[in-house]
Design a protein around this nucleic acid. Structure first.
Lengths: 211, 211
DNA sequence: GTCTATAGAAGGATAGAC
DNA sequence: GTCTATCCTTCTATAGAC
């Protein structure tokens, strides 16, 4: 008779969650195994029992966080709506996600910059090729109407993403220049305003683009 | 009789330069005093003779790097040319600076995010207030023609800066999605293309903005 | 000012009992 | 699986000779 088993390993999950928080907050170099153990309510020895090294723990966490961010973006852009509608929906949903994960962008970008090899092993599992190809094909007519050629897609996509991501990555730089936005509530309001500002800005630029 | 003195302290300068490189490359937590000493061609003891602690050395370096980036931006926007001309000039010059300092954006943004208090003592010495006020006043007519109110300036300025800064901060994320740009020469070409793309994009969006 | 040598603390990882 | 105790390396910082 097989004994009842807890759905998954609870301790492991608690460790994983604690590690996610600490790494996201402090980065790899700034994170301490002791702090992760404390937050998970266990000791260092047990931490090493589940994840033998800091590297391994970090790798597991990073992969999940990167995928989390990436898949949400892709899923919106894969939907079956017009390009203009996609833009509005993307800014709305993506900015809401980022409001809930304000430190995620700078964490991902910084760690990736220090450790480009982190991407290996994740790249293949991400549907980014799909996205690149399908996006232009699916909206060929609409985009052609805007004078966007396939070669222009990287510049355009980068521009779109930067509207939502950059303000979070540059949060403290913004605070420096616009002290009013130091207050988190005001910053969130500013980012919610930005949903419409960004969509209008991009759509206007596209519609009136010289061909 | 006063003895002849070398213009400034050479060793100190070498340390400062070495520290700038190492911090910019590895970040505060990842940087090692030993590596800085090696790069400066001295030993750790002498390093501590000039800068008693790592914190102090970092503070000095960070302040200079932040100011360097900031002042260049401000100086362009302070010139006496039309707003449209400023945009083109800004994208041209700023992107060239960033090409020569590709790791600077992610370094500054990340350290600022981990240590917001770094700004104290720098803020007052930066002419950002000046910039904020003068920009809108100087171009009141031109901006009003675009339907830009004073309240819209933060969104607009953030947008402009993100066009040039974000691609460097997100360099490895871009590489992940667009493998062709892994090659530095191609990435630089991509960023030089972006000068015109960005200026056209922003100007088109402004000109046709609904009021 | 510059060096060699080393102190002292912190942090990742393991041994071994329960 | 979980804990206590401890090892060992790395890193910042200092003492002290020249």
């Amino acid at each position: 008779m097989v004994k009842y088993q807890v759905p998954d390993n609870q301790t492991r999950d608690r460790i994983f969650k604690a590690a996610s928080e600490v790494f996201e907050e402090k980065g790899y170099d700034g994170a301490r195994m002791q702090e992760i153990a404390d937050l998970a309510g266990i000791n260092k020895a047990l931490l090493h029992y589940y994840f033998s090294t800091k590297d391994q723990l970090f790798g597991a966490v990073f992969q999940v966080l990167l995928r989390k961010m990436f898949e949400k973006i892709v899923s919106i852009f894969m939907e079956d709506i017009s390009f203009k509608e996609k833009l509005r929906k993307f800014f709305d949903q993506h900015i809401e996600i980022l409001i809930k994960n304000q430190k995620l962008p700078i964490f991902l970008l910084n760690e990736l910059s220090h450790n480009p090899e982190l991407v290996q092993g994740i790249r293949e599992t991400l549907p980014y090729e799909q996205l690149r190809n399908s996006l232009f094909q699916k909206h060929a007519k609409e985009l052609k109407g805007y004078g966007i050629k396939k070669d222009d897609m990287p510049q355009l996509m980068l521009t779109v993403v930067s509207f939502s991501v950059f303000p979070f990555a540059a949060r403290d730089m913004i605070t420096m220049m616009i002290p009013e936005l130091a207050d988190n509530k005001k910053f969130i309001a500013f980012m919610r305003d930005r949903k419409e500002f960004a969509a209008d800005f991009v759509i206007t630029a596209l519609k009136n683009r010289k061909k």
